[in-house]
Write a protein that binds this DNA or RNA. Structure first.
Lengths: 164, 164
DNA sequence: CTGAATAGTTAAGATTGCTTAAATATATGG
DNA sequence: CCATATATTTAAGCAATCTTAACTATTCAG
């Protein structure tokens, strides 16, 4: 077996476990707040990126701008996001998380962090060092390949905004 | 900083990157097949577990059994799952992926595998060994803590079924 | 054996969520 | 400057998705 197959295989296994566990937790928290998975997807995107346009969010959710706009309107009504004029292009809107929205995302992350913490506490110090070193190598390679953590969709637009 | 904080922090970062990237890819594939995220969630659950009851799927998606039933009906119509009588309890149904459903899940996983592969190919052999060792430690601890990979919801029922 | 509990399905009603089309404001390029 | 392009919103129409309620078949426990 090639080394890269081994890495990819281990990542696949890890991802499957994470996804399996994660999805349940996210669904649960979403329901508590009366949100759908698309809502949560949008909130996480905003948490990750800080700010987005309506159409960018729509692209990432794989829906039309009109669908995104209507969905974001519902999130505005929930008090989780705010829309404002984009100062660099008055046709566009900037969408950001509100404090409440940020708290929602934090809450979603906390359960996961507690899980990570408890898993980590089962390791010896030596094991921890190995795991952290391995994870950092991984993150470094991922970030090197993809500095923006952005797999698709309007990278140019976003780069322009970053540079303003 | 404590070792376990470091591990948990690295995991948090990794998860965020994965989630950010993953979500886009999953959304894209779902759309291509005219499926919603709940559909995909159910398909992944079935892929992970092999078989589930209607109510178990509903629990995991955070909806009532009636909602789950109706959603699964749509997946049946898409040809992605099949429902049959549960031989151990004729009140219940067993839900499994069809071949087509399995292909859908495979397709969804493939893009991710390719990504993992390309990330792995950027590593030296030494780096790969460290990453794999670290990941295996992690997987081992996770599995030790949670052998079924099942974070919640009707563990007893599932255990009974496993033992049959 | 029988009443109670359980699993799933279906219907009804309300909301969400999607698409397309139309409209408005703004930016762009010749 | 002006025609074209772009970002968003809103409306309309259709399907999805949710909940509750009612029903049927099956299982369970006294």
């Amino acid at each position: 077996m090639r080394g890269s197959d081994e890495v990819a295989g281990a990542l696949r296994e890890l991802t499957e476990v994470f996804m399996h566990r994660s999805m349940g937790a996210v669904v649960y928290i979403a329901r508590q707040h009366g949100l759908s998975m698309s809502h949560v997807g949008a909130l996480f995107q905003l948490s990750h990126r800080g700010t987005s346009s309506v159409s960018n969010i729509g692209d990432r959710l794989g829906v039309t701008t009109a669908a995104a706009s209507q969905m974001l309107e519902r999130l505005v009504r929930h008090g989780l996001i705010a829309r404002s004029e984009d100062p660099t292009d008055r046709r566009a809107k900037q969408v950001v998380l509100t404090e409440q929205g940020g708290r929602f995302v934090d809450e979603a992350m906390k359960a996961r962090q507690r899980w990570f913490q408890s898993v980590a506490e089962e390791m010896s110090a030596k094991e921890r060092r190995t795991v952290v070193t391995g994870l950092r190598i991984l993150l470094d390679k991922i970030r090197r390949a993809d500095p923006d953590g952005d797999p698709c969709n309007r990278p140019k637009e976003n780069e322009e905004r970053v540079n303003k």
